Amino acid sequence: MSEWKAKRFWKEAAVEDADGGFTVKLDGRPVKTPAKRALILPTRPMAEVVAAEWDAQEDEIKPHLMPATRTANAAIDKVATQHAEVADMLAAYGDSDLLCYRADRPEGLVARQAEQWDPMLEWGAEEFGVRLEPRTGVIHAPQHPDALKKLSAQTHALSAFELAAFHDLVSLSGSLILGFAAAAKARPLDELWDISRLDEIWQAEQWGRDEEAEAMVAIKKTSFLHAGHMFTLCCADH
Rank of each mutant, 00 (worst) to 15 (best):
V15P: 03
L41I: 09
K25P: 02
K36T: 15
A56C: 08
G137R: 08
T136G: 02
T136C: 02
E115F: 05
P145E: 06
D17G: 06
L65G: 08
V130E: 01
A80P: 04
M46Q: 10
C100E: 01
A103L: 05
A47D: 05
R112Y: 05
W117T: 00
M120Q: 04
T43V: 08
P119M: 08
L99P: 01
R70K: 06
Q113H: 03
I76Y: 07
I76C: 04
M89C: 08
Q82P: 00
G108M: 13
W54D: 03
T81V: 15
V50I: 09
A56F: 09
A51L: 13
T71Q: 14
R102Y: 01
E115T: 05
N73E: 13
A87C: 09
T43I: 11
E126I: 02
P34I: 13
T33M: 06
K36E: 13
A51Q: 11
W117E: 00
A47K: 10
E85L: 12
E122A: 04
P134A: 02
F22M: 06
G94C: 02
V24L: 06
E16N: 03
M46C: 02
L26G: 03
E16W: 05
E127R: 14
D19H: 07
L132A: 02
K11R: 15
E85I: 11
D19T: 11
A47Y: 08
M46A: 05
V49I: 07
I76F: 12
P30L: 12
L39I: 04
T23Q: 13
K25I: 10
D17Y: 07
M46H: 04
E115S: 07
L26E: 08
P45T: 06
S96Y: 06
D97M: 01
H140L: 15
G21H: 12
E127M: 04
F9E: 14
V15H: 11
Q143G: 04
F9M: 08
P145W: 09
